[in-house]
Design a protein around this nucleic acid. Sequence first.
DNA 1: TTGTGGTGT
Length: 684
Amino acid sequence: MRSGLAGAWKPGTAKPVPQAVAVEDLNDETSFTIHASVQKQRHQLSVYKQRDNLLYLVENHGTTIVVAETGSGKTTQIPQLLVEAGWAEGGRTIACTQPRQIAAQTIAARVAEEMRVTLGTKVGYSVRFDEVATRGVTQIKYMTDGVLLREMMSDPLLSSYSVIMVDEAHERSIATDILLGLLKKIIKRRPDLRIVVASATMDIKAFHDFFDTSREKLQNSIHRESVPNRSPAVLSVEGRTHSVLIHYCDKPVQDYVRTAVSTTIAIHKIEGPGDILVFLTGQDDVNAAVQMISEEAEKLPRALVALPLYAGLPASDQELVMRPSLSGRRKVVLATNIAETSVTLPGIVYVIDSGFSKQKFYNPITNVEALVAAPISQASADQRAGRAGRERPGKCFRLYTEDAHAAMRPERLPEIQKGNLLSTILQLKALGIDNVMQFDWLAPPPAELMVRALELLFALGVMDGHAKLTSPLGHQVSELPLDPMSAKMLLTAAQTGCQKEGLTIAAVLTVQTIWASGRERKEMDEARAQFAVAEGDMISYLNVFEGYLHVKNRNQWCYENCVNYHALAKVAKVRSQLSTLLQQLGGPRQQQHDGDVKLVAKAVTAGFFPNAARLEAEGGNTYRSLRGNQELFIHPSSVLFRASPKWVVFQSIIFLERHYMWNVTAINPAWLTELAPHFYQLKG
DNA sequence: TTGTGGTGT
């Protein structure tokens, strides 16, 4: 480095391109060993085809389980090669799962173009609300991991598929983790099923060992004949990334937002052309940094344009960062984690990595979910650095010391170990996994998270004393794409003649908030007050949705009423899907009690009774949770903030300076003992 | 007395 940055930064080290097998080392029918540390035996593999400097291998006997560490192109090409190998014949389909909808859709479109076929014929995709595929015709189907998981509920052996390729396995989404566990289970009954696990992580041992059942075979002589040898083949394919020079700070950084700003300015002054990507933790950090850089940039001779990027940003603002910068101008994008995997920006040559991201932590004892800025993993740090080397060699400035980097956990924590497991456990039950504690997890969630989930499912009445789904409630709840408390609320509402209201509330609770962001607080309070009713937030949403439905220009109406148009559009979509599912579950039900909000509030209580709280003293604003006796407050944005009703139920708790209840409904305490006598008893 | 890292059915 030249002067300016040199003082603060340790000399950089060039990050090597990931270890890969050189293409020229391999010939047809060559027997070879890759990743010697992982492989205990050699695999007979045949080179199937070579294209674009990428290599694809297919094991030439038995079931193929390829754990592939691959570069760009594998997602589009491996499935095509499998089709050419004849694995999609006889009406069978090759499935390729992705953790994100947008990836499934765009990759499918690209492959259809490469194969010169119409999307939806030989190549298709399936994501929620949008399936473009033809049964019996589609040979390659790109789909979200969640869609395949849902399909397993009606077809547990995935009988229409010949190959399942689980892509981006290193991201460890909840659906992918469950899928891998279930696949390992079903290959015992489907010896013809091929599985390809594609992961970008350097540490592929976890996936390899997970599918390596050769040891189990020795241990279990009863199954010796029926279980084929399944030591997975490991395939490593070179990714086409450029080297990225990595710099560390020589001492810990006090304020990573300020340091990110000063480093940006220094890069702009000293370094050659190329845009800058800065990883920060949240909206506040991003907006503060944008402001600071914009002020600094005014004093500089060469133009530097600062742009924010986070998921909550309106779509039009997100498009701004995708545009190439004008000549002579340098662009700096201040982003959250969204730029790590979900959004790929063109033109980035410099990356500044704060070393932090916001992560969700759930405390099963207090039932509190908190979002806190925490150090990232080494894998995430690599991923962030790699964003600088997509088009040409780049540089990455880490706002932490080399020692701090060494202290980071190597891999990111799987999502399944962090969150509330209610839906996950229920889904496994519905898939016939009776003993979830003994499920073959790729990484088991903490036992206390599982126990807590099982207790709550029992309390809700969806699971019986033998840990089996109840009938019909347990099965119905598992069929609905909702968290179990919302699902029970909806089913109760449908039973008691207020299905319409139940559908709206359940749909609204699937979005983070229906309110617009970035407005003045006073304006927001006034807008909310127009829809507010004494029963609370959830019932007030009914008024918002009614208003939205009955105007011509919804976009304008949303703007005028401080409502998020995109959120309500999604609510409408989810609501109609739920309505269809409800009909399939129990036939059409009569809407008997139009507008009886007491009945609706009672249905809300039937679902959310485990989250009940009581006002501590008349005239005060402190609540205590009935379960856990925790001090709680109504969130100031709630329509009940000033009303302080004596008894409430809530959707969730947010931890800020205090513990706040979110989405609050006022209830009659008699409902608690009536609806959940096993959970609440009257005192004295 | 005022929030939202990122996904998904």
